[in-house]
């Protein structure tokens, strides 16, 4: 199968969506991502039991915050699929791509980088799962 998904999609691999923290998601938007699609295993199939359920809650939380601060809650979304289900992934990526295009550019601006965190604070650079850069 050679299925194409939008070129703007940048894949970031994580061991489990349970590893994706709210902070990782926010940092993506801070750095200018227009959308983040979190692709987790199917519900009930998590190797770590509940990683994808935790991710879903965090995605909901981050979406609500993005909505409140004017970035737009629709820019973060979670889908569940199995790693062998390429057609479903491609469909989800295309649909999300369309949705993000419709929402327009991230109002935070693309060039922004987070302030360098003071030595004693700040998380290591986060591995966001998927950032779409049209």
């Amino acid at each position: 199968m050679r299925l194409g998904y939008p070129e703007s999609v940048k894949i970031i691999r994580v061991p489990c969506t349970g590893k994706v923290d709210a902070l990782h998601l926010l940092r993506c938007f801070e750095r200018g991502a227009d959308g983040v699609l979190v692709v987790g295993c199917r519900e009930g199939d998590c190797h770590y039991q509940s990683g994808n359920f935790r991710a879903r809650k965090r995605v909901g939380e981050v979406g609500a915050l993005l909505e409140r601060i004017g970035v737009g809650g629709g820019r973060v979304r979670m889908v569940n699929l199995s790693s062998s289900d390429a057609p479903l992934f491609v469909r989800a990526a295309r649909e999300f791509h369309e949705a993000v295009l419709a929402a327009g550019p991230n109002p935070v601006g693309r060039r922004r980088r987070p302030e360098p965190a003071p030595a004693r604070a700040g998380a290591p650079n986060p591995p966001p799962q998927e950032a779409i850069r049209p």
Binding site: D21, A22, L23, L26, R27, F29, E30, L65, I69, G70, V71, P107, V108, G109, R112, P114, E115, A121, G122, A123
Partner: peptide, 16 residues
Amino acid sequence: KEVGLLASALRMVFAQ
């Protein structure tokens, strides 16, 4: 962690 979240959100608000 909550410091990071609030700081990130504040930066995005100020940028806008």
